[in-house]
């Protein structure tokens, strides 16, 4: 097929504006698996502004498995902008011809990865939860479709590089090896400000004390069974006790009790924490699609027939107003932090 000249496995990290590179660290776990199978080296690409200090990120990416770090730096990359990031990364891909390029599943990566693939003529698998190398040495990806009810296996075998965005938490971050060092190569892209047809005006950072729903290991969600916005404090109390993020069903978001940023489900967020606790949530399919891949699912609901009990690993048929305070008390007595 004439793809022999494409070599190497890349993982991409956006490191400007204080973005976490944790999602990219997860990518190195699967990159190592692919590297072992293909016998190809791993490179991490870090995009950031000239004045962003990325030294510790680069060191960590090396310790987690990257052989080379391409640190793409430019003043115009100090703020994420799709057309500038697309050009900076596309130019490097065209110059170096990697075989595989992996992006994290963050809103930022998903914003520009599709543009990159059009620009360089490759294919992109979206939001995959599993990657493997098939007998022909091609990259196979598995993703869910039809609102999480089906799984599809597919590949981007018609062009190189083979690219994918990887759903967060599909792979655990590996242990850094303090003896590993990546070769860091600073790359200066050719960019000009007039390429950018959007401009960031303002960022309102969320409450930083609050756990982010999509990053949390434990999520406690509440539904209509909480009966009012005020009584949602029950959900917050349990979440606080567990160090969990707060989620909500569509019904309570539509009722205005909680912001849309907390909505779990079809028109909200898809989460996959290790522990998901659904309080007073009946379990309409629109909610289930947002949480059914969670590790352990607990449901507390008054209605013994509620569909949520079909998805729950452990369910308590009971009133949230009785059970949740008892649970909070028991956890306080237990005193042991949760070990997820």
């Amino acid at each position: 097929m004439g793809f022999e000249e494409y070599k190497g496995i890349w993982v991409v990290a956006e490191a400007s504006e204080g973005r976490s590179t944790e999602p990219a660290q997860e990518l190195l776990t699967v990159a190592k698996e692919l590297s072992a199978k293909l016998g190809q080296s791993i490179s991490a690409v870090v995009l950031s502004g000239t004045s962003d200090d990325t030294t510790s990120t680069e060191t960590l990416l090396g310790q987690l498995g990257a052989d080379t770090v391409y640190s793409i730096k430019h003043d115009l990359l100090a703020q994420y902008q799709s057309q500038l990031y697309t050009k900076a990364l596309s130019d490097l891909i065209l110059a170096k011809k990697p075989n595989i390029v992996l992006f994290s599943g963050t809103p930022t990566a998903m914003d520009y990865a599709p543009r990159v693939t059009v620009r360089i003529g490759g294919g992109l698998m979206s939001n995959v939860s599993e990657l493997s190398v098939n007998d022909n040495g091609e990259l196979d990806g598995v993703k869910s479709c039809l609102a999480e009810s089906m799984l599809v296996s597919y590949r981007t075998d018609k062009a190189r590089p083979q690219m994918a965005t990887v759903r967060g938490k599909s792979y655990a971050t590996g242990q850094p090896d303090a003896n590993r060092n990546a070769v860091v190569e600073v790359v200066t892209p050719e960019l000009s400000a007039d390429l950018a047809k959007t401009r960031l005006l303002e960022v309102q950072a969320g409450d930083t004390a609050k756990k982010k729903l999509e990053d949390a290991d434990i999520v406690v969600s509440g539904g209509r069974g909480l009966q009012s916005a005020e009584q949602f404090v029950l959900v917050e109390n349990l979440a606080a006790q567990l160090g969990a993020a707060v989620g909500a069903s569509r019904a309570v978001v539509d009722a205005g009790w909680r912001p849309h940023s907390e909505q779990v489900g079809q028109t909200g967020k898809t989460v996959s924490p290790k522990l998901y606790i659904a309080l007073g949530i009946s379990g309409a399919i629109q909610h289930l699609v947002g949480m059914r891949t969670s590790g352990t699912i607990i449901a507390i609901n008054r209605d013994a027939e509620a569909p949520i009990f079909k998805t729950a690993d452990f369910g308590i048929v009971g009133d949230v107003f009785d059970v949740v305070p008892a649970l909070v008390d028991a956890l306080k007595k237990e005193g042991s932090p949760v070990s997820v």
Binding site: G123, L124, S144, S149, V152, F309, D322
Partner: peptide, 26 residues
């Protein structure tokens, strides 16, 4: 197209979990 679909299947249903119907919350 730049992708090739190889297989499509239903996500396996979870097996039924434990359901406690117990009057005493503690």
């Amino acid at each position: 197209s730049t992708t090739t679909l190889t297989r499509l299947w239903q996500r396996p249903e979870k097996s039924a979990g434990i359901k406690v119907e117990e009057a005493d919350p503690t």
